[in-house]
């Protein structure tokens, strides 16, 4: 029987050699905890993230937009599902994870505590929020935990239409009337900074960043990912003819990258703490779905049990 010390060594060798860790493999408790925290947070974000966009399904301005938006939100439900399943392979079931979300113990991405006020926000969410998520998720395809990595590969493949969907909405608005273009600019103004906050605190202030990097759960730091997102997004904003709400934003020829202003971290921590514009509504909506669905889930379980019993009886 291998000693824990040996197991630790085997584990570290695997990480070193880029061999994925799989559910039944030995892993340090902290690695497991860290993963459950990150994956479930990611799953909760997908599910809560359905809500702001969901607001606009019944008000989508054309049938083409309506079906695209519905399909996109449906994918988010799917992605939440894949991620919950990945977290479950680590030994914590979905029911428990959902309870942690509802009790406020587990977090989800703060961006979803901002309201979707206009149709242009649906464009901005697709372009910026999904854009930021994709930068993060592309990196996570190479994460060291097998089920998480496989989930991410599937999610990235499916998400490729999400950002395009959002950008196309804004492009249409920017080519439309003055009123439409103003709507697009307003959405960018409100979503730009919260989108940058999605990458989390600066690595020097991040509680989990260093360890996650060492275990190759994350493959790039928060600051690098954020910079990457800015560098790829600014030209897209220029193409739309929209102005990014950051007076300090300018191209730095020397580092071949953009310099930019300061994130309002006080706002960031306040939204995390529950003081965002929609924190209460989002959790209340999830709680209501959970509570109102309880008798339905129980009925399905009871029916399955009865049916199985009848089958056994018939066979006897």
């Amino acid at each position: 029987m291998a000693q824990e010390k040996d197991l630790q060594k085997i584990f570290e060798e695997k990480i070193e050699k880029e061999i994925k860790i799989e559910p039944k493999d030995w892993m340090p408790d902290e690695y497991r905890k860290n993963l459950i925290r990150q994956i479930s947070q990611h799953a909760h974000s997908e599910v809560v993230g359905m809500l702001p966009e969901g607001n606009w399904i019944t008000r989508a301005p054309s049938l083409r937009r309506k079906v695209a938006l519905l399909a996109k939100i449906q994918d988010e439900a799917g992605h939440g599902l894949y991620l919950y399943c990945a977290a479950e392979t680590l030994g914590k079931d979905r029911e428990t994870l959902v309870q942690e979300l509802l009790s406020g113990k587990a977090k989800y991405s703060s961006i979803f505590n901002y309201p979707a006020l206009t149709w242009a926000d649906i464009g901005a969410i697709g372009w910026l929020v999904d854009g930021a998520a994709i930068v993060n998720q592309i990196m996570l395809q190479k994460t060291s935990y097998g089920p998480y990595s496989r989930g991410m590969i599937r999610i990235c493949k499916e998400e490729s239409f999400h950002q395009r969907q959002g950008y196309e909405i804004l492009l249409t608005l920017c080519r439309g009337t003055e009123e439409q273009k103003a709507m697009a600019q307003d959405a960018l103004n409100r979503f730009w900074w919260p989108s940058l906050m999605m990458f989390g605190p600066s690595d020097k202030d991040s509680a989990h960043s260093a360890q996650s990097m060492a275990w190759k759960i994350k493959r790039m730091g928060n600051d690098d990912l954020r910079q990457k997102f800015i560098d790829q997004t600014v030209p897209q904003a220029n193409f739309l003819g929209l102005t990014i709400p950051d007076p300090e934003l300018k191209w730095n020829e020397e580092k071949q990258s953009y310099d930019w202003g300061q994130i309002d971290w006080e706002e960031f921590y306040n939204v995390i703490k529950g003081n965002g514009p929609c924190n209460k509504e989002r959790l209340a909506a999830r709680q209501a779905a959970y509570d109102n669905g309880a008798w339905v889930r129980e009925a399905a379980t009871a029916y399955a049990k009865k049916k199985a019993e009848r089958k056994t009886k018939d066979a006897a």
């Binding site: 809500l51 939100i73 439900a77 309880a294 339905v296």
Partner: peptide, 29 residues
């Protein structure tokens, strides 16, 4: 049916019900 999106009794059910909504919207188009 699309009003159920995000509020279904279980995640799997959300996905299923949206599928029906998408089918129907496709027929309507």
């Amino acid at each position: 049916l699309s009003e159920w999106c995000g509020h279904g009794p279980e995640l799997e059910e959300d996905i299923a019900i949206i599928n029906t909504a998408l089918d129907l919207l496709g027929h309507a188009r």
